[in-house]
């Protein structure tokens, strides 16, 4: 950016920045600071007491565990989808490419009730799976599928542009040197894709942890078994236990924040190691 010579040329800086900061403060910062102040009132011992409630622990474990699982599966599946969409040609490809963003556009409540209809014991897929003894809806597996649905676009859309812009010369060189396709993929393509796969994984995970609408229908909401943390927060609010809800909310925000920080550090380490830059 050529900062110095442009500094005072364009008008409207004061009003634009002033409005931005005012609006940001009213809509975002005010509620956020209320949460921090209310959380501070609870105190460390209060936090610990709330965290150690068996139902809270179970909900947090379930939420983070299933979010990790869904983000992991989506990282692999997202890589596959991105690979197929960028490397191969087949009929209907453009429509499928556009359809990847369906979970962004479809309201989560709609996804929730339709996934439940598909995977309920008498649903299209739920019935045959029940025959095999696999329970999906009203079980952790159903929650994981809902989480995979809402976070799939993150996993595909972070990897896809990197694959598209990747130069084929590296792969050609690798092939010339006698490497097979699988070796080339593992040793040449994957290291270049790794930062974007990690970004996709982190954003998928963050989205999954907070997800409520699509999960609440398919999960069955049994305390200790299929109750996710966001649902538990809603329950606390409905019982007017605002300190309890605030404490769990802050724990979730904190864990998500450290997770994203961790992924960023991992990426920095990875880019130093391989000499590639962030996607």
């Amino acid at each position: 950016m050529s900062a110095a010579k442009n500094q005072k040329v364009l008008p409207g800086f004061g009003i634009a920045l002033g409005y931005t900061v005012l609006y940001l403060s009213l809509i975002v910062l005010l509620p956020l600071s209320a949460a921090f102040v209310e959380a501070a009132k609870i105190g460390p011992s209060g936090f610990w007491e709330i965290l150690m409630r068996p139902r809270v622990l179970a909900a947090l474990k379930l939420s983070f565990g299933l979010s990790l699982a869904a983000a992991l599966v989506n990282s692999v599946a997202g890589l596959l989808v991105a690979w197929v969409l960028t490397r191969y040609n087949f009929p209907g490809k453009k429509i499928i490419d556009a359809a990847i963003d369906l979970p962004f556009a479809l309201p989560t409540a709609v996804a929730g009730i339709s996934l439940t209809a598909v995977y309920a014991p008498r649903g299209w897929l739920g019935a045959p799976l029940a025959e095999l003894g696999i329970k999906v809806a009203f079980a952790p597996l159903g929650i994981m599928i809902a989480l995979m649905f809402v976070s799939l676009p993150f996993a595909v859309r972070t990897v896809q542009p990197v694959l598209e812009n990747m130069d084929s010369e590296l792969e050609e060189a690798s092939a010339t040197l006698g490497a097979g396709r699988w070796t080339t993929f593992r040793r040449v393509v994957l290291p270049v894709l790794m930062p974007s796969i990690l970004t996709g994984f982190a954003t998928s995970f963050a989205r999954c942890v907070g997800e409520y609408g699509s999960v609440v229908f398919i999960s069955g909401n049994m305390p200790m078994k299929t109750e996710i943390a966001p649902l538990f927060i809603v329950t606390q609010i409905e019982q007017y236990d605002l300190p309890g809800a605030t404490a769990i909310a802050m724990i979730m925000l904190g864990v998500s924040f450290f997770f994203i920080l961790f992924i960023n550090l991992l990426q920095a380490w990875n880019s130093r190691r391989t000499g590639t830059t962030k996607a």
Partner: peptide
């Protein structure tokens, strides 16, 4: 990056 439920809270 804030869960919808948490923003409601």
């Amino acid at each position: 990056s804030v869960s919808p439920v948490i923003s409601g809270l």
